[in-house]
Design a protein around this nucleic acid. Structure first.
Lengths: 239, 239
DNA sequence: GCTTGACCCTGCCCCAGGGTCAGGGTTCGA
DNA sequence: TCGAACCCTGACCCTGGGGCAGGGTCAAGC
């Protein structure tokens, strides 16, 4: 006959946990000795190890209670199911480890793989970090609005980047961010941009990504989403 | 600017969880629109994904708060530590899977590997299941009293079992459990047992495991731990 | 015989990480 | 213009215990 402390240590749980299991009806209350202490037998130890094993597997205590006085077939089935859940949790934890590793840097955690690839391509092109942040945030917001559209548009934009003219325009717009709104290069840039759009339209290819909703989404996401020069550019192109 | 529902779906958490993170100060409260709705930016989405990633790794919310506004070096160190914990948890879950598999049968979960081997040997010898339960429960209780002693005694008992005389005695004591207390074979068995003990003692080998404390422990652990015939045997040997 | 430290008892409140419900107001698409 | 789907706050509930209070018990050493 052993005490609650010995029992708890045997099973590797706390005394408090044992009392908790009594309260929940998982473990039968044993006899008390003359001073009111609980006195346990080997059978209690066996029952407690079973409880602990199931609890460590993540089985809720309420279900452990049912399981322990279920018939062996039901127990076997339940164990198979619990084991399956365990395997899944292990897989999940492994995925979490991968994600954790990405937490220290990079955008892959926040955007789709396609968008991440797009951002990498822009980086390689020499686009400013400010502009890349802008792009990234735009894609994040787009995905919240419509993941499928965002995915499609990402692909389209990556195709567009094959076009050397588009690349040049993109880089120039990026550079123009910091220009003075009176910069004489702005009208020329606006003209080139408009011509490029018209060309594409004439060749009746897919319309480039310039959905106003998206533009608005992106624009409102950050204070740096516009600049005096860009505002001027927008007015010049809209005219 | 997105709503709380869109934000939550993006990060794969519930709306309630987002509000919870606000309350805990993990995620800054964003601006409200004219009707009091929270309006989020891409930066909030990024922050939320970070929070979720850490939370999924099992980091307590309070610590996540500290981590998010710690310097990058501290973050890197913390991530390494968290990843280590994650790896340990995966190993732990794997162990739990093994234990779970043993839950359906066998004693290996409850006794030391040595004691399990001893029980197997007894089974092979043809010892009754009742007696094996008795042995098992005895070892469980002994381990709660003194794991090292239990381990040593287990080894000694396994050595003893090599002795053919001891085996025969063990099996006869097992069989005697069900005899009538008046059975004429009892005195002879008691005599044989005593002779065997004396022989060992003369050869001054290690004293066999017959510590009274242990006997008492085992005896009190179960109602079937004694029988009329055994009681008689004990009296005969004690005389 | 007395003290000291390690146990044990019950009962209570506390924590994380939310879920759920109540009792509203808002927005949006058909 | 109406109903569905959102959003708001606040309050209570849940699991699996931890911690503490306030007290009783036991065994060892002096």
């Amino acid at each position: 006959m052993i005490t609650i402390g010995q029992l708890a240590e045997y099973a590797g749980v706390t005394v408090k946990a044992v009392r908790h299991y009594h309260q929940r009806g998982l473990l039968a209350e044993p006899e008390r000795d003359s001073s009111g202490y609980r006195r346990y037998t080997a059978e209690d130890a066996i029952a407690l190890v079973k409880i602990r094993t199931l609890a460590e597997a993540g089985v809720p205590l309420a279900r452990i209670g049912d399981l322990l006085d279920a018939d062996p077939d039901a127990l076997t089935a339940a164990i198979a199911e619990i084991d399956h859940g365990l395997r899944e949790r292990i897989a999940q934890l492994r995925r979490t480890r991968d994600q954790l590793a990405q937490l220290r840097g990079g955008d892959r955690l926040f955007v789709s793989p396609e968008a991440a690839a797009l951002l990498d391509e822009l980086r390689e092109l020499g686009v400013s970090e400010r502009q890349i942040r802008l792009e990234r945030d735009g894609w994040i917001l787009m995905r919240t609005a419509s993941p499928e559209d965002a995915s499609r548009w990402t692909a389209e934009k990556r195709e567009l980047l094959i076009d050397l003219d588009f690349r040049a325009l993109y880089l120039d717009h990026d550079a123009a961010y910091d220009w003075s709104p009176d910069d004489p290069r702005l009208p020329a840039l606006a003209e080139r941009t408009r011509t490029w759009f018209d060309d594409r339209h004439h060749r009746s290819e897919t319309r480039p990504v310039h959905n106003p909703t998206i533009a608005r989404l992106a624009a409102q996401s950050q204070p740096e989403a516009s600049s005096p020069a860009w505002d001027r550019l927008a007015r010049l192109m809209g005219a």
